[in-house]
Nucleic acid binder design. Structure first.
Lengths: 181, 181
DNA sequence: TCATCTATGTATAATTT
DNA sequence: TAAATTATACATAGATG
């Protein structure tokens, strides 16, 4: 797709890899967006950059997609015999943990925000510099909160995926099998 | 990419839509696979077909990605670009207000989260119903926090646009804004 | 570095089998 | 009806500013 054909294998040069990641992530999300619109499909994506930063895409949003998974199949593939209360369902445990973590974080960020807020009020005579700084700080704060929300979303989505059939692009056999259903 | 250009909007014909979905899902997963190999990135995708069938892709596998999410520490994204321009108090005021609001919300949601968390722990024998309810509640919580973050982002975007009549190219914030409408 | 450009490879809409 | 083909549109690797 570019000036030259490239082999599909790990890009060695760190910088090039980062650039490639950035471009292709953008492309991937764009494709996902088109798919969702063209087909009315719900889509959720989570990606870790080479530097381990999380990015996510969701349409309409990751929450809805996750919620739909739940409605999808109440227990189609479970031991329906008795509503055996899986009290130590590992998924439940992990979700609970995640929820607790996000809440902790929210509280933490809120506290940080208070400090920030107060500091900024002192500057209220406002120079350009201050505005710029505030933008930067606010962006960081938002970024953190968003990261936590995204993380939890992703986590939930991942757990839900476990219950679903997984397909790899090259796996034509799996594809065929599924069509039969 | 095909014989003719198509508008990115819901494909009306059911059959065509299904075909398009199938082709594009394959393409999306292929891209995701390439991204993961080229950049050593972890990727997970969930998609619902127009017929509401779930499909997913994960590399190295969905569980690993999920596990990594648990470990991940949020890193702030680089501060967004800013350039020099004159500005004055009103903008500062509004931004300050917005920031304060977000912080308030964070605190509020954190509190709600505590209640939720506790309530859920009681249920830790966990039936399907409870799991579903928890998902729903968690989703609502996340949505609210997200809404506020988005709001603030939008706010900031507008202010920035005012400040610098210099147009930005496809800016992420602007993109988001457009999607909301 | 960082965005923009562009020649080329890839994905895919329409068509054919 | 689905699979294969083909003509185009799109994505992007490397170049360039």
């Amino acid at each position: 797709m570019g000036r030259r054909k490239i082999e599909i294998k790990m890009v060695k040069d760190t910088n090039t890899r980062q650039v490639t990641f950035s471009k292709r992530r953008t492309g991937l999300f764009k494709k996902a967006n088109e798919l969702s619109i063209l087909c009315g499909a719900e889509v959720a994506i989570v990606v870790f950059s080479p530097g381990n930063k999380p990015y996510s895409f969701g349409h309409p949003d990751v929450d809805s997609v996750a919620a739909n998974f739940l409605e999808q199949e109440p227990k189609s593939n479970g031991p329906s015999s008795s509503s055996s209360s899986s009290s130590n369902d590992p998924n439940m445990e992990r979700l609970n943990q995640q929820l607790a973590d996000v809440m902790d974080q929210s509280r933490e960020e809120a506290k940080k925000g208070e400090v920030l807020d107060e500091a900024l009020k002192k500057y209220n005579k406002t120079k350009v510099e201050d505005l710029k700084e505030m933008h930067a700080l606010a962006a960081e704060l938002r970024s953190k909160i968003r990261a936590h929300v995204n993380e939890m979303e992703a986590m939930e989505a991942m757990l839900l995926i476990k219950e679903q059939p997984v397909e790899f692009p090259e796996n034509h056999v799996a594809k065929r099998l599924r069509r039969k259903n």
